[in-house]
């Protein structure tokens, strides 16, 4: 049994022959970690996450989650994953609880789980309000509630704090820590380096489709002789430009 919850081996992708997006990415997300997947816009973060979740057809490389090959265990893997990719996926004509009910049927988890995640994401007062009328922050909370609905072992979240106010960001940080303490592995992608630094245990830095660094935050600091993530990130991506 591997110590990694998620592993990719030589994962490569290109839109066409002239535009490679990912170049032999070997992601290693340790079980029980909070892994920050960092990179500037267009670095290949979302493409990697979409490949991991099967939203894009894999061209080259290998993906293993919970030590299972993606191709042969797709449904078993997805049963244990919660995800939020880019903008929230919500049916705007339904209420928050109705949205969760739609997915509860598919996941076949207990109905009580709906109230649990509503409570966890502080959406208890939304009542009969349709989600189309929600603020961006509320939509984001609901999207996180959806990702938590099946009590996942691995959470994959792309920019989960988008649209949240400072108080909401702090609450989410606490929620992620709490989930992690309960054994949930979290893979986060974000631009908010300061925020990520407060939360993550491990990081992978991607730039122009190449993984420039992967390891613990301490390893990153030791290797690059700086204490804050922002400085190291800029140094790394600049040197890759050159």
């Amino acid at each position: 049994m591997s110590n990694y919850c998620l592993e990719t081996t030589n994962l490569s992708h290109q839109w066409n022959a002239r535009t490679p997006v990912l170049n032999a990415i070997n992601l290693r997300v340790p079980t029980g970690s909070i892994y920050g997947f960092l990179g500037p816009n267009g670095a290949g973060k979302t493409t990697t996450l979409r490949l991991i979740l099967g939203l894009l057809k894999k061209q080259q490389g290998e993906i293993k989650i919970f030590s299972w090959q993606w191709e042969t265990h797709r449904i078993a893997i997805l049963r244990r994953i919660g995800s939020l990719i880019e903008s929230p996926s919500i049916y705007s004509q339904l209420t928050a609880r109705e949205n969760l009910r739609v997915l509860q049927r598919v996941y076949r988890c207990p109905q009580t789980r709906i109230e649990e995640v509503i409570h966890l994401t502080r959406l208890t007062d939304t009542g009969r309000k349709r989600t189309g009328k929600f603020s961006l922050g509320m939509k984001q909370r609901l999207a996180i509630a959806i990702a938590l609905l099946n009590d996942p072992a691995l959470l994959i979240l792309d920019e989960p704090t988008n649209g949240l106010d400072p108080e909401g960001i702090i609450e989410m940080r606490e929620l992620f820590r709490q989930l992690n303490r309960r054994g949930v592995t979290i893979l986060l992608s974000s631009h908010l380096l300061g925020e990520m630094e407060k939360l993550i245990t491990h990081t992978g830095i991607i730039h122009k489709g190449q993984l420039l660094f992967q390891g613990t935050l301490d390893q990153l600091r030791n290797e690059h002789g700086a204490s804050d993530l922002e400085t190291i990130f800029i140094t790394l991506t600049k040197s890759n430009h050159e």
Binding site: R50, G54, L78, R79, S83, S87, S89, V106
Partner: peptide, 18 residues
């Protein structure tokens, strides 16, 4: 079109169903 309009295909395809 409900899925396109609400940007929910990605959520649907990551649910544990074939």
């Amino acid at each position: 079109q409900l899925e396109y309009r609400n940007n929910t295909w990605k959520q649907l395809f990551t649910t544990p169903q074939s």
